[in-house]
């Protein structure tokens, strides 16, 4: 493997990690509260707002059912508004975040819904407010599930980030397509795949380990 190739791979890995980190970070920032809200705002629930719940749920579903590559193209005006440009690694963060947010929201919603309703009942019984219940009961209890969800989201984002090469975003996917496919450098393609596999393994292992450490439901967790 030539030093030039190595440089390209390192550069692309850096770009991928940056995009994924930004999208996962922002996706969590927006997706976590959204997920908590979706999980607690149904009829008769803690923050009951059934109408808003329905609207947000529909938006989330619509975003999630749009294939990522179409989403990327469809929101180009929005991307330009936010990033000032619609091409490049920075611009790619916008569609990635837009895709990550509802995905993370649904995963968080699922984790929150797993929390035993008896805990909410107990917290209400000792006088906790809905906000206190969310912050002191639901999120801490759902944390292992949330961490697993975020792990899944990061792994998915690694895959999505490979697609933003199509709109001029950098990263491993872009490298693989441009060199590996278009310039027919199978060794580059192979290297990209290997790096992605290693990244996915690392993320999954770290996520699993963290979730297990947080999960006190198991003895000696």
């Amino acid at each position: 493997m030539s030093p030039e190739m190595l440089r390209l791979i390192l550069q692309a890995t850096g770009d991928t990690l940056t995009m994924v980190a930004i999208a996962a970070g922002l996706g969590t920032l927006f997706g976590l509260p959204l997920g908590v809200f979706l999980a607690t705002s149904g009829r008769g629930e803690l923050l009951a707002a059934p109408w808003l719940n329905r609207v947000l749920g529909t938006v989330v579903n619509a975003t999630r059912s749009t294939p990522f590559i179409i989403l990327v193209v469809a929101i180009i005006p929005f991307t330009r508004l936010i990033a000032g440009t619609s091409i490049g690694t920075a611009a790619a963060c916008v569609p990635l975040t837009v895709a990550a947010t509802p995905f993370i929201a649904r995963l968080v919603e699922g984790a929150i819904r797993e929390v035993d309703g008896g805990l909410v009942e107990a917290a209400r019984a000792f006088g906790a407010s809905p906000l206190q219940i969310v912050l002191k009961v639901l999120i801490p209890e759902a944390l292992p599930g949330i961490v697993l969800g975020l792990t899944l989201a990061v792994v998915s984002l690694l895959g999505f980030s490979a697609m933003v090469g199509a709109v001029g975003g950098g990263g491993l996917g872009d490298l693989g397509i441009r060199y590996g496919y278009q310039r027919f450098m199978p060794e580059m393609m192979l290297a990209v795949v290997v790096v992605l596999i290693v990244l996915v393994q690392a993320v999954q292992t770290l996520g699993d380990r963290l979730a297990r450490r947080l999960n006190k439901r198991l003895r000696h967790g």
Partner: peptide
């Protein structure tokens, strides 16, 4: 008022993370 009314449950309802 609920601070003046304690409650215990059949399935304890303790937070597993605490």
């Amino acid at each position: 008022e609920r601070r003046g009314i304690g409650m215990i449950f059949q399935h304890f309802n303790l937070l597993s993370a605490r």
